[in-house]
Amino acid sequence: MWPLARLAAGAFSSSGAFLQVLSAGRYRTSLVNSLALSTAAAFVSVALALVPAWVFARERFPGRNLVRTAVSLPLTFSGVLVGFLVIVMLGRIGAVPKLAGLVTGREWFAGSAFTLTGLFLAYLYFEIPRAVMTLEAAFRHFPPELDAAARSLGAGPITRLLRVTLPYAAPALFSTLAVTFSASMGSFGVALVLSRRFTVAPLEIYTELTAFLNDAVAGALCVALAALTFGVDRLLARRAA
């Protein structure tokens, strides 16, 4: 763990860099952007993962294993690859605009890969599989008699979801949020490939490091990013316990 210690020591020894990072400006914006994007991606991916996770945990249907493999496949993809896949679909000559062009005559979404939308979709692309797999494991432990008991007590589907399933699954939801959030915070490859104007902290670190050779600021940004990630992760993990 010495590189981290070295990083922290280096950043603290030049406290000027820290002040620079935390005061208003590009660096702080990048941290705020990372935080906002990661939070949004975490919530949206968990919301979208609820149904598939429940289906995988509860239902048996033909092709289940194939579908499950397809959903969890992106877990193995690194960020640059995900970025590329988003370009493949939503780039200026991506598959979606080409298809839209064939059908409607206008190439919708062309180049949206390089907008905030594209970046967000890329985050979802690698977060949803994580969220589905984590939640599935939790849902599998949900005792079926609990749901049956709620039904026999007169609870309809919505009441059951709100009053039984979700409260029961709350710890799992929080730990899933923690997993997806910290993965998003550290995501570098996606932004490297897709980001044009919108900047996130890992990208800023890279720029400082390679373009401006500003090691102190890069180090300070790293420490700030790690602290933010770690802090929120712990916070969510505590609610999950």
Binding site: P3, L4, L7, G10, S182, I205, A218, C222, F230, D233
Partner: peptide, 17 residues
Amino acid sequence: TPLAIPGIALAVGLLLG
């Protein structure tokens, strides 16, 4: 801990270290 820390921080730490 490396699992809970952004990969880029780890990489930069190694590089600068």
